[in-house]
Design a protein around this nucleic acid. Sequence first.
DNA 1: ACATAATTATTCGTATACGTAAAGTTTGTA
DNA 2: TACAAACTTTACGTATACGAATAATTATGT
Lengths: 151, 151
Amino acid sequence: MDFQNRNPVDCPYYLVSRVSLVITSAMKKGFADAGVTGIKPAYLGALWVLWLDDGLKVSELGRRAGLEPSTMTGLVDRMERDGLITRQPDPQDRRVQRILLTKAGRKMKNPVLEIVNTVISNVFGDVSPEEFDVTTRMLQRVLTKAQEGNR
Amino acid sequence: MDFQNRNPVDCPYYLVSRVSLVITSAMKKGFADAGVTGIKPAYLGALWVLWLDDGLKVSELGRRAGLEPSTMTGLVDRMERDGLITRQPDPQDRRVQRILLTKAGRKMKNPVLEIVNTVISNVFGDVSPEEFDVTTRMLQRVLTKAQEGNR
DNA sequence: ACATAATTATTCGTATACGTAAAGTTTGTA
DNA sequence: TACAAACTTTACGTATACGAATAATTATGT
């Protein structure tokens, strides 16, 4: 890896950052085109976690979605404002807020995941299954290693 | 691509977003550990473009770095504040501000790119050259296609 | 039991990014 | 020439993310 005589476009940092923003933009458009309101791309991670395991506390939700607790507070604020979740104090531990999907939040699962399917298929339309698998597994390893580094 | 019964960690959107943030965090630490001050990860794209072609106008700099003009204004503000660039009015076109590297901005090139090398090598340490190439080329194609879609 | 430590969520300040709108300048055209 | 259109940058509001500090609560060690 020697970037001294190369362009930003050769740098994986540039590439993943740009692709992340490209997908965010495509997601916004996908939701808007499908007429699904009240959801933002940043909600996806947390919603997805809750669809699999509802009623988590803020910190555990953040841990599974890859976000810091201080980031979660604002995200949960906006998701609450948009009617997708509610905060419920935990009677067992008064420090804890349990995050629970509303009916609207639960009902969104299938429509939203269909839109996610479509958007991902469009963005990665020209990518072969082999390339896709190599990249997916590689990025998963990078994340796992980064998590281990923070222990 | 069917995410109905999968986890966020199987979704390339989740992966590229998280990896992007992981690298940002590693870059911050890389700069701090090396004692290089006045640079932030977000400056990298713009700086890199200027190292190759100094004196661009804001919009062209943004185009090459993949950022909207309205994003560039704030970024240029901070880079100016941190002493890396200056704004110079263009006498040929009074709408235009030319962005010029300062001496400090120029001198940073080699040290900063060395840190970028190191950080990228660490983050992608376990990745084979083949996986790395497949991923790089794939993401480049995705970006190119996305740009074409916006014309 | 009680002081100390750890956990939990939040607030605050900052950075990063977008879209929309505005103001000034230049360009194209009638 | 005059006027409309396009371009260029900036301002503003919003969203997203982090780290440091804080307050409240719970857990731990002696």
